[in-house]
């Protein structure tokens, strides 16, 4: 009975999420991209007063950086010190 209820709940969850998964994922990606711009902005020449703090975040975002610059239409990393490809 519990297993059946859990399956039903999982099915309903999928039914709730599936129609809007793409809208959500796009919105999330757009926000992540804005955040990426904030963190790497200083390195790209945009003055950023919070640079000392965002500098620490660079290694955290390093893995996603490659996908980001490809998505932004740059085939190679625009930054000298970030070699991802």
């Amino acid at each position: 009975m519990t297993g059946w209820l859990a399956r039903l709940s999982a099915f309903l969850k999928a039914a709730y999420e599936a129609p809007y998964r793409r809208t959500m994922a796009r919105e999330a990606r757009a926000r992540d991209d804005a955040f990426m711009m904030l963190v790497f902005g200083e390195a790209l020449g945009v003055p950023n007063p919070a640079a000392p703090y965002t500098l620490e975040l660079m290694p955290v975002l390093h893995e996603e950086f490659h996908d980001w610059h490809l998505r932004m239409g740059m085939d190679h990393s625009p930054l000298e010190h970030v070699k991802c490809c």
Partner: peptide, 20 residues
């Protein structure tokens, strides 16, 4: 890609399609 292209259980997809 986890955004537009996601393999989905056929019954969930039918429910989504039908209710849309």
């Amino acid at each position: 890609d986890g955004i537009d292209y996601v393999p989905t259980n056929k019954y969930v997809l039918w429910g989504h399609h039908f209710t849309s």
